[in-house]
Amino acid sequence: MNRRVILTWVLALVGIPAVIVCSVLFRFDRSYYFVSLVIIVLAMLPFFAAFEGRRPQAREIVIIATLTAIAVAGRAAFFMLPQFKPSAAIVIITGASLGRESGFIVGALTGFVSNFVFGHGPWTPWQMFAYGLLGFLAGVIFSKRLAKTSGLGGYKPLLILYGALGTFIIYGLLVDTASVMIWASSFTWSAAKLVYLSGVPFNLIHALASAVFLALLATLLTEKLARLKRRYGLFQP
């Protein structure tokens, strides 16, 4: 691990509790949004630093950029159907095939770049973190297993299940929590309950979309990525 990575881990592990303690101590309670923003950003730093730190090869960068661009283009292509978008599915497949780190990077970049199309706002860091986490966890759960099967093997149903649940719980919860922070400026359970409940239909559609796109694309995309990995010896530790 290089120095920068260690530094960011320290920052995250010390910084996040410190920010929380500070906010309580100094009665900083009025800006939950700000505090949570700092936490989110600190949490993302180690991932970015790790990516920077290992100085990725040209081919890895190109493939990560390609997958991100496809995820963003997918979000833009389905703009007329609210929440029905393939981005999460692509991020999940990336994490599953190329590993958790690539999954996080593609996810976070997808959240970031797509807002150059749809407009940045206070929600940007949350979307980045939510997509990133989705990809990261997909990597944690699937990448070792998929590496053995050199394809999707029998994991497709499991991947679809993870996609639906992950999109609903991880992405939905994080982004809705961000909404609570943005709207309410302070976190109360009754407000949160309202936001979460009103978010359920949207998150259900999003989860459904992830499941559908995973069902359609997972086999194809993992095969394509496996072919590239084979041919060019990519993403092998």
Binding site: F48, F51, E52, R55, P56, I61, V62, I64, A65, T66, T68, A69, V72, A73, A76, I105, L109, F112, V113, F116, V117
Partner: peptide, 14 residues
């Protein structure tokens, strides 16, 4: 640098 380049490439691909 690496993330920035990736970002620039995404914008080029889109």
């Amino acid at each position: 640098p690496a993330l920035s380049l990736t970002f620039s490439m995404v914008l080029r691909f889109l």
